[in-house]
Amino acid sequence: MEPVNDTQISEFLLLGFSEKSELQPLIFGFFLSMYLITVCGNLLIILATISDSHLHTFMYFLLSNLSFAEICFTSTTVPKMLVNIQTQSKVITYAGCISQVFFYIVFAALDDFLLSVMAYDRYVAICHPLHYTVIMNPWLCGKLVLASWILCVLYSLFHSLMALRLSFCTHVEIPHFFCELNQVIHIACSDTLLNDMVIYFAAVVIGGGPLTGIIYSYTKIVSSIRAISSAQGKYKAFSTCASHLSVVSLFYCTSMGVYLSSAATHSSHSSAAASVMYTVVTPMLNPFIYSLRNKDIKRALKIVFL
Results as ranks from 00 to 15, higher is better:
Asp111Asn: 14
His266Phe: 12
Gly209Asn: 01
Asn65Gln: 13
Phe31Thr: 09
Ala95Tyr: 09
Ser33Val: 10
Gly213Lys: 03
Cys40Met: 14
Lys295Gln: 11
Glu11Ser: 10
Thr279Cys: 11
Gly213Phe: 01
Val280Cys: 11
Asp111Tyr: 05
Ala108Lys: 02
Ala48Lys: 05
Ser33Gly: 10
Met197Arg: 12
His171Phe: 08
Gln183Asp: 13
Ala273Gly: 08
Ser33Ile: 13
Lys80Leu: 13
Leu140Thr: 04
Ala264Ile: 07
Leu211Asp: 01
Ala125Val: 02
Ser224Cys: 09
Phe103Thr: 12
Pro138Ala: 04
Phe178Ser: 05
His54Thr: 08
Lys143Thr: 13
Lys236Gln: 13
Gly41Ala: 01
Leu292Arg: 12
Thr265Trp: 01
Leu66Tyr: 10
Gln86Trp: 15
Gln86Lys: 15
Val281Tyr: 11
Leu115Lys: 02
Val39Gln: 02
Asn5Ser: 14
Gly96Ala: 02
Arg293Glu: 02
Val204Ser: 10
Gly208Met: 01
Ile45Phe: 06
Gly41Leu: 01
Ala147Leu: 11
Pro283Arg: 06
Val304Trp: 09
Asp191Met: 02
Tyr200Leu: 06
Ala147Val: 11
Pro210Ala: 00
Leu140His: 11
Ile297His: 05
Met197Asp: 10
Val198Ala: 12
Leu23His: 13
Ser190Glu: 10
Ala263Asp: 06
Ser53Gln: 13
Ala69Cys: 09
Val106Asn: 08
Arg299Cys: 09
Leu36Ile: 14
Glu173Ile: 00
Leu140Glu: 04
Ala188Met: 09
Thr265Tyr: 08
His244Thr: 08
Leu110Lys: 06
Thr7Lys: 14
Ser116Asp: 01
Ser167Pro: 00
Ala273Val: 14
Ser167Gln: 15
Ala273Trp: 15
Met162Tyr: 10
Asp296Lys: 12
Cys253His: 06
Leu151Arg: 08
Glu173His: 12
Ala108Met: 05
Tyr278Asp: 05
His128Met: 13
Val153Lys: 03
Ser10Asn: 15
Val304Lys: 10
Ser53Arg: 14
Phe103Val: 03
Ala203Val: 00
Leu250Ala: 06
Met118Lys: 07
Leu301Glu: 12
